[in-house]
Design a binder for these strands. Structure first.
Lengths: 118, 118
DNA sequence: CAGTATCCTACCCGATACTG
DNA sequence: CAGTATCGGGTAGGATACTG
């Protein structure tokens, strides 16, 4: 198996802390857009810097499109591209699995904590 | 959106460098088992330490089962649990997407490198 | 409003050596 | 064979301050 396989490269992207949340919010809005500040409001705990870094990476990958209204102050809108939207299918499958099975994983970890002799 | 949502917790696990490869190899073998050294051989570049850490984490989560034959030297076998096997569906969907679309993402990044003024 | 620019810390991961 | 122990570098990510 190749440690540089496409799957690993993809996980290096969507595995970063805020990426999956940004993609989900933009997917819910698709084909509409969200502004920088609106995304910031909907992702509790994210800093301006991390939202900026996250979105730049998504734009660079071609998963998200950035549109600037040249007003003062500027209004910047983000939306998923067709490529980004196509990622929603496997990503929502992963979300469904997580919501269904993460509680069981949590229980398994608690059991491991209670029986440290295994 | 909750930054501690199940999806993020799941990505924190399968997003680590070697986890998705270990799961894939064990899934291909399911319901059979693989030994430590055999996994090591099939994951080029992984160190003993990282394979050990990766497998321990998977066992702790209940995604992988560990079976020790008390011989000298010991023979340790790993296999996916039912829970681990259920993860294969969304994970293979993600792999399929990665193989199909990562080349396009690579091209997008190359274009971004060539046009730094955007 | 939508970003940059710095600084700093935690921790993932690799390299290496050792062991029952 | 299947681990554990230890050390160290690189980097993701947080806090804070500044700007067109």
């Amino acid at each position: 198996m190749d440690p540089r396989c496409p799957t690993r490269q993809l996980l290096d992207r969507i595995g970063t802390k805020w990426t999956s949340m940004a993609v989900k919010l933009l997917a819910e809005e698709a084909p509409g857009e969200l502004r920088f500040a609106e995304l910031r409001r909907r992702i509790p705990g994210i800093s301006q810097k991390m939202l900026s870094v996250t979105l730049q990476s998504l734009v660079r990958d071609g998963l998200v499109a950035r549109r600037v209204e040249p007003t003062v102050p500027p209004a910047v809108h983000y939306r998923l591209t067709a490529l980004g939207l196509s990622l929603e299918d496997p990503l929502s499958a992963l979300r469904d699995w997580a919501e269904t099975h993460m509680p069981e994983i949590d229980r398994n970890n608690q059991l491991a904590d209670e029986s440290p002799l295994d």
